[in-house]
């Protein structure tokens, strides 16, 4: 059996990748991909602990998280389309009408 630490290290790595992606990438769609990576790393942690502790609450949580992630993608893409119609760009650096 693979020790539980392996899963946790993998999920921590995924989470870090997601955070770094949010910080350094500028395209709004890539930002959303990075956010999905963060959510999925949390899912991996949940399922690891649920299986390790023998408690199904963690697996129940994952279904909620997946639903939320899908809704988030839908809302996010809708807002991106609205913005793209106004500005013809999805680059976060060029979205700068509002500042300081």
């Amino acid at each position: 059996m693979i020790p539980v630490e392996y899963y946790l290290v993998l999920s921590a790595f995924m989470f870090t990748t997601g955070v770094i992606g949010v910080l350094i990438r500028r395209n709004a769609i890539v930002l959303f991909m990075s956010i999905e990576l963060m959510l999925n790393s949390a899912n991996l942690t949940f399922v690891t602990f649920a299986s390790f502790l023998g408690d199904s609450a963690g697996q129940v949580f994952i279904f909620f998280v997946m639903t939320v992630a899908a809704a988030e993608a839908a809302v996010g893409l809708a807002i991106m389309i609205a913005l793209f119609r106004n500005k013809q760009t999805l680059n976060a650096d060029e979205v700068n009408v509002l500042k300081w």
Binding site: L8, S11, F15, G18, V19, V22, A28, L31, F32, I35, M38, L39, S41, A42, N43, T45, F46, T48, F49, F52, L53, A57, G58, F61, V65, E72, G76, A92
Partner: peptide, 19 residues
């Protein structure tokens, strides 16, 4: 974008508390 990142970070925290 800010909201999704914040809730993603919070979710990771919740998963650790659960564990």
């Amino acid at each position: 974008i800010y909201g999704a990142v914040a809730s993603g970070i919070m979710l990771f925290g919740i998963s650790l508390v659960f564990g």
